[in-house]
Amino acid sequence: MSSLPRRIIKETQRLMQEPVPGINAIPDENNARYFHVIVTGPNDSPFEGGVFKLELFLPEDYPMSAPKVRFITKIYHPNIDRLGRICLDVLKDKWSPALQIRTILLSIQALLSAPNPDDPLANDVAELWKVNEAEAIKNAREWTQKYAVED
């Protein structure tokens, strides 16, 4: 593999030196393009108190194409499916080479605060979120307690 682009080095340094509150991204020892990410559930959201593990990979043509991000921790969310894949515009058609790892992770954190059931990835979750929001939020809380809280 070719040497690491300056852009990635810079971003990594900054992520380590000035981490974003509630977000922790550490590059893998053996692969500087693979990041172990931890996002804490935002306050006042059903994911509050949860610690969510994600993986983030910078493809060869990054930043011309978006990073690949996936939840490893199970999460009950209309825009995140059972495999942890995320439906988020900035990871797809709205990606811009001027966006960064930290902006993407912030967007993901924001998605936890503001689920969008009108653009669903997990259909059953989105359906319930629309029909019975209270019930859906209750499920999300339960899943958070069950999968994202370490005893």
């Binding site: 810079k10 900054r14 000035e18 811009s96 001027a98 960064q100 930290r102 902006t103 912030l106 967007s107």
Partner: peptide
């Protein structure tokens, strides 16, 4: 700033 508002400090880096 091309970056999210809450991370305006990033602009300085670049």
């Amino acid at each position: 700033d091309p970056l999210a508002p809450s991370t305006s400090k990033d602009a300085v880096v670049f």
